[in-house]
Design a protein around this nucleic acid. Sequence first.
DNA 1: CTGTTAGCGCATTCAT
DNA 2: ATGAATGCGCTAACAG
Lengths: 335, 335
Amino acid sequence: MKRTTIKDVAKKLNVSVSTVSRAFNNKYDIKEETKELIIKTAKELGYRPNPIARKLIQQRSYNIGIIVPEFVNSYFPDVIMEAQKVLIDKGYQVLIMQSNDSSETELKNLETLLDNMVDGLIVSLIREDDNIEKYKELLDDKMPIVFFNRVADKLDACKVVFDDFKWAFFATEHLILQGYEDIVYLSGPKHMRLSLNRIMGFEKAHRKHRRDVGKIIPCGFSMEEGAKAARQMIENNQVPRAIFAANDHCAIGAMRVFKEYGYNIPKDVAIVGFTESRLAEHIHPTLTTVEQPTKDIGITAANLLIEQLENKGMFVPQTIVLNGRLNVRESSVTH
Amino acid sequence: MKRTTIKDVAKKLNVSVSTVSRAFNNKYDIKEETKELIIKTAKELGYRPNPIARKLIQQRSYNIGIIVPEFVNSYFPDVIMEAQKVLIDKGYQVLIMQSNDSSETELKNLETLLDNMVDGLIVSLIREDDNIEKYKELLDDKMPIVFFNRVADKLDACKVVFDDFKWAFFATEHLILQGYEDIVYLSGPKHMRLSLNRIMGFEKAHRKHRRDVGKIIPCGFSMEEGAKAARQMIENNQVPRAIFAANDHCAIGAMRVFKEYGYNIPKDVAIVGFTESRLAEHIHPTLTTVEQPTKDIGITAANLLIEQLENKGMFVPQTIVLNGRLNVRESSVTH
DNA sequence: CTGTTAGCGCATTCAT
DNA sequence: ATGAATGCGCTAACAG
């Protein structure tokens, strides 16, 4: 069963292939009448333009690569699915790769995507310093790239970021306003800009309310790391009144340990997470957390990329900062 | 910065393009010496064969489509990532689509993928009866398809499935052996083969141990549904001694409600989930659950597809049944 | 408004 | 063992 080609349609109607082509790319002059006839006949014959041939002649792959660190948290799948919707609508094909939290894998992914001739990239970096030369090269070659979530200051490119500073500030202030004196911040890796921004928000909230800034403990984004941090606090007899965690998984890991040791959440220890996860509403107590606009992030990144793709060359890199929401739940509220 | 083409390499070495082509597809006679020289020079020039041109001439897209119902549970991302690894290794490009639990979306995804001329498909169905005609058509046209997880009996195709019967049996038997008398099964949707298989396993375990088969309550795969079912049992004063749930989310939803109402897990109600999730180890109490071999599923599906791709035509559809593991944890063990 | 022509980059058949 | 020629399906420049 051979695929119907443009020739079959042309032959059938005794027109030239270019006329058929015009009908399908309605940008050249073509009589409305013939155009409709062609479209109609094409449909009857089951003709669909061969995207591969089109790509070859147009010298564009219509492939977009997306690279993310992991798929463990729902954050990245959520962002990706939204971005994909937008891109597919515009006729792009989306290739998704995850780097498994390894910069080497990230580089390999990058190369796989380049081999597949992607026209553009949407990337969340593993580490802001690794592979940076490679990205610079690509950027210099005018490869459209939009970074999001984990971005590198050193890269002059389009970025879609969350206002980590502001929302860390709000989350911290929320804890302060609830009357918690002694707040510990379980911070994400310090090599990430977003960790630093959140730390700054954490500090600012303290300053605003004239408190001493609470302890900042480097942690990570996994339940294990959250649990480990909690265990350490307990062992060291340094359990604070409240904890603000790098993300929900980390918060939940810590929460679990505290509960195991008989601490009541939030009476003994209040907890706030970050980046609303699917679990936040479902654990006990339900978790107060900052919700990131995953949909918006995906859509915005995709749109920025499309803009670049369409105005290749004359395009000014811009950074778009998105807003979030604090979902206050049981884990941080004592009545 | 134009991409180096096969011509550039040929010109540089004063050989013909066909010789270069041969060097890169080492299947024709070519002197080892010239071949090496060509490969070496090609690398120097930064030449990489244009996959699009290759696809056009070979009449293959090297695109593989993967369609899954959702990305909420970690199950599908896990399977996909493994399948993708295998496929990319073989030079395929993977297009991932999720159906959002809607058969219409599934159909749209299917068409998007077909537009992109996928050479093959890996699919987990939304409903076993929907879109079945479409799949039959594709299968009749010799489109290589591998179904997994949610498959349709009516489709004569390659399938990779989990032994739901056996592992539901083991899970149930585990509860029986722990001494729980009265076991309720929160079943997944009855239109799914896998739900029925699990029910059969549930029943068989009861028969083997000469018990009356416990109640089977149709539920679903979400936390909400699990919670709802639990609430209903409590209201109706029909709380069983043990619950076997359709999946971990469902189990956790139910667990939460029971805990809220002061039930102790596992003393008052024991709970077993299905399809090991990231949460199982991290909630309290930790959840006993059946682990599915997600990696194997992904790898097997990919390999089956590759086999079909390579032996197109003379290929006998086969069903591969994979084994799992019961991870016994606190939620089902009373000491 | 439409047809003719060329060619995107490559694999492959047919010569040699 | 290698080169020349052909064409995959399509778009676009050029003619008319």
